[in-house]
Amino acid sequence: MAKIELKNVTKSYGAVEVIKGIDLEIRKGEFMVFVGPSGCGKSTLLRLIAGLEEITSGDLLFDDQKVNHLVPSDRGIAMVFQSYALYPHMKVYDNMAFGMKLARADKAETDRRVREAARLLQIEHLLDRLPKQLSGGQRQRVAIGRAIVRDPRVFLFDEPLSNLDAALRVQTRLEIAKLHHAMDDTTMIYVTHDQVEAMTLADRIAVLRDGKLEQVGTPAELYENPKSIFVAGFIGSPKMNFLTGSFADARGCATLGARPEHIELAPDGSGEWQGEVVHAEDLGSDNYLFVEIGADEPVVVRQPGKLAIPYGSRVSLQPQAQHLHRFGVDGQPLR
């Protein structure tokens, strides 16, 4: 429902600047993911938007209105925390209704909204329970339900899945994606360090590094046209291979990037790179081959299906020229 603009936003704790001037526009109804390594400032940025931390300089606008000094509850936001942050002494129903009770909302309206959110998340049968009687996944749903009841303009998620186990994480990720479709006019901002979550959920991704925006774009854009070695290395799994020295010189760049899925096995030494298989990982659907070709590190090659290549065998590799990424000495892509 709301368009969010950040204009040269900074945040300092004393002399330490953690957010170093961020300009970003988040569109109405967009699902925006902040992603980056730990300590990059993504959570701080989310907390600045929430109003839990104060902006040091710059402007934060919701629908062209400056909200820098509004307290969180006046911003029309709702937040889902990493640890769920349910009120342990309140039943699920009261957890979800607490915000509206504090706002002295109409009782019938509160009840309607709580039940609707519960229905949406299929937690109606849990309304009378205490948080400690719920499983991790159920708690996370209640936390999301509590946010829905607030009928926010902006929905904020702070690493909501990192406390769940792997299987539940995938399932809840799907729930959140469905939720986004069901509430497609609500802007959502989602913080994660997991690039898979980012790629699967986001309309657009903002990659942060050291308190600065590294690149903003759709998952496809980031994958196909990373604007820096950092983004290229951060997005995609397994990680992009980076080659320097003669491998890069051959293509007229300082660093050559090749994604594991864009390197093929060439028959009988006809490929550009020759090497020895030093390690292999069989994921069932895919095979990751680690090939020592004389670069700084072994090159990872992703091959679909089952490929029985014994350790130590010599293989020939051919990168797909149209998918190679060339970077200059400054880490920027060369065109």
Partner: peptide, 25 residues
């Protein structure tokens, strides 16, 4: 936990409400 307090802040609780209705119990 800090996050419980922050959840209450987002829910619109004043410091007094946080003490009496969230922390005291």
């Amino acid at each position: 936990p800090v996050e419980i307090e922050e959840a209450a802040i987002v829910d619109g609780a004043s410091p007094w409400v946080i003490i009496t209705r969230v922390f005291l119990p």
